[in-house]
Amino acid sequence: MIEFRDVDYSIDGRPILTGVSLYVNPGETRVILGPSGSGKSTTLRLLIGLVHPDRGRIFIEREDVTQISEERYRQIRQRIGMVFQQGALFDSMTVGENVGYALLEQNLDEDEVDAHVREALRRVGLDEGLIDRMPDEMSGGMQRRVAIARALASRDPKILLYDEPTTGLDPQSSERITDLIVHLRDTLGKTAILVTHDIADAFKVGNVITVLNEGRVVFDGPAGDLDRANNDFIHQFLAPFRKTVAAAAQRLPAGVAPRPAPAPPLRGGTS
């Protein structure tokens, strides 16, 4: 479904990613984990074509996106829903216009867009009455939900990308967003990549985990194997979260792609 093949990317000669290879199966939820500045978000930016690799190839549904025209890339992007780090809602548009943006771009009938928008808001547990609100009239947690609704409302996205969707939120809102992602994973079954530095989130959401450090893949496999990885960086990185990792390792047998954690009931609310 998604493949990075030996990808290098640098900015002004400073390497950001070096020799990154990973493969995401259809329907899989992959977590890319790592400390700040390890190149996690860059992998998503490369995938969606916001930046281009210096070397290597990137495939989306077997199509090499490093070799295609911008126009073709635009068509491919319409099948991808992306949630940006701080939401990146269009602040001059209402919630409804934000959520329905991709559909309006595809010249869908306004009534049809409205129905899709309401459905997407319901899916993320937001009240339909928020449709005419401006993004800055809502809390950070609600904005993040709107951002997820916007990604879902694209015309049947086959791939969902989450770039640190809980960054900057209070623990309660953060947990609600993570629960929402788990719920969407279980109900929609779409291919997804979650970028996070939060180990608890990673184990809660991910089927398979890829760990990045200084732009290199240091682990790529089932979450249950992460605890047994023979790598100093991973041991140091996981040290503060021993209990979480041990519990996950017990739940997930080594070498077996983990069963997703059961989806918690979707909570509505205002966070």
């Binding site: 916001l50 635009r74 068509q75 992007r77 940006f84 701080q86 269009f90 991709a102 771009e105 694209s154």
Partner: peptide, 13 residues
């Protein structure tokens, strides 16, 4: 605030 990247991500020039 990444809004321009979001435009690109949603297929807008």
């Amino acid at each position: 605030s990444d809004q321009i990247d979001a435009l690109v991500a949603f297929g807008t020039d």
